[in-house]
Design a protein around this nucleic acid. Structure first.
Lengths: 191, 191
DNA sequence: CACATTCGGGAATGATCGTTCTAGAATCAA
DNA sequence: TTGATTCTAGAACGATCATTCCCGAATGTG
């Protein structure tokens, strides 16, 4: 009945995501997006409603995949202490392997959350999912006597989640791997 | 010999700083700066070389004052554990009293450090000053037997500094005070 | 093949960007 | 007051912004 698209929307979304991730929202122009994705303005605006729409789609895509990955690590088997270490190690590994990128959600949180309710909502949701998974894991571990009974699982969960943010921040400014490992080592020590 | 300026450059710098701090670099226009500072384009470009120049002056001013404040808290008298708590508490207090602002340096770190060597340099310098002060304080405390001998002062310093970043991140997205206090409580517990 | 429909490159839109220019008002020393 | 100098408001600059439009090319259906 009609012509089919000459590009894969998922690939386009991936390219756009990396561009927004690296440069931020305001510093990325429609021109940049066309060059990164390889499609024209018409296709871009025809498929995604606007620059902001494309940004939100990219951000949600990234956040969904990211939180799912973190939750999997939190909900894995084994001592919770080891799971948290693997969680934080995985963040360090990602930052080291992609220097200067940081985390798209953290970047969006800084740049746009205060002025963009849609972004703030994605950030809040992602945070809640990870923290909730951590709280559940820590509660279970506490019931099993694996961590001290006098500790507050919610406080620990907030703390561990905050470490992820701290590592993302360090990664964005290309801090040494040693610095990030220091943070992980000390943080894991509290459990 | 000539006319004198009709405005106070320091006040202008303060107004510009707050605008950049809140909105970021790319999202702040020369128009915004003129409105915030109350001076015209000519005066702005005549006094500061460019938008980027004004941004750097603002950032350096903020960073100098901020790191000096943090260093003072670290180098105060009393048990190092209490000093660190006051340090982190002061960050929480600032974030709560200025919701959604976060830290200008952290914001700049995310938005511009990867693509702006000048900004990266300011960020690096600020980090080094605070971490160095922490290392010195922790080493002294360790020599006095105040903290365990098997701990690594540099690791602890990196960790404490990372907590500041984490709190700034939480502040930028207007996290609950309770969340930030959780982070502080758990973090201080490791010393 | 022929038609209906969608796609997409690139020109065009008005707005806004950072920056410079212009012209006159204001301020100093003499 | 004079004259040299520096100030500043606002117009003007070319560039670029996000977005829309045009229209020929491409494609699936009958």
């Amino acid at each position: 009945m009609a012509r089919s698209k000459g590009f894969d929307p998922d690939r386009v979304l991936d390219s756009a995501m990396h561009t927004f991730w690296k440069q931020g929202y305001a510093a990325t122009s429609a021109q940049d997006l066309c060059e990164a994705t390889g499609i024209g303005r018409s296709s871009l605006y025809g498929t995604f409603e606007s620059k902001h729409g494309l940004y939100m789609r990219s951000l949600e895509r990234y956040a969904d995949a990211g939180t799912a990955g973190l939750r999997d690590l939190v909900e894995a088997r084994g001592p919770v202490r080891e799971r948290v270490r693997r969680l934080l190690d995985s963040v360090v590994e990602e930052e080291v392997s992609q220097p200067g990128l940081g985390c798209f959600v953290v970047n969006a949180q800084i740049e746009r959350a205060p002025s963009d309710p849609d972004v703030a909502s994605v950030v809040r949701r992602g945070r809640a999912e990870v923290v909730d998974a951590l709280v559940r894991a820590l509660r279970t571990a506490q019931a099993d006597g694996e961590i001290a009974a006098d500790k507050d699982p919610e406080a620990l969960a907030d703390f561990v989640h905050a470490q992820i943010g701290a590592l993302r921040l360090l990664g964005r400014s290309q801090a040494d791997r040693a610095t990030m490992e220091h943070v992980v080592d000390v943080a894991v020590g509290v459990l």
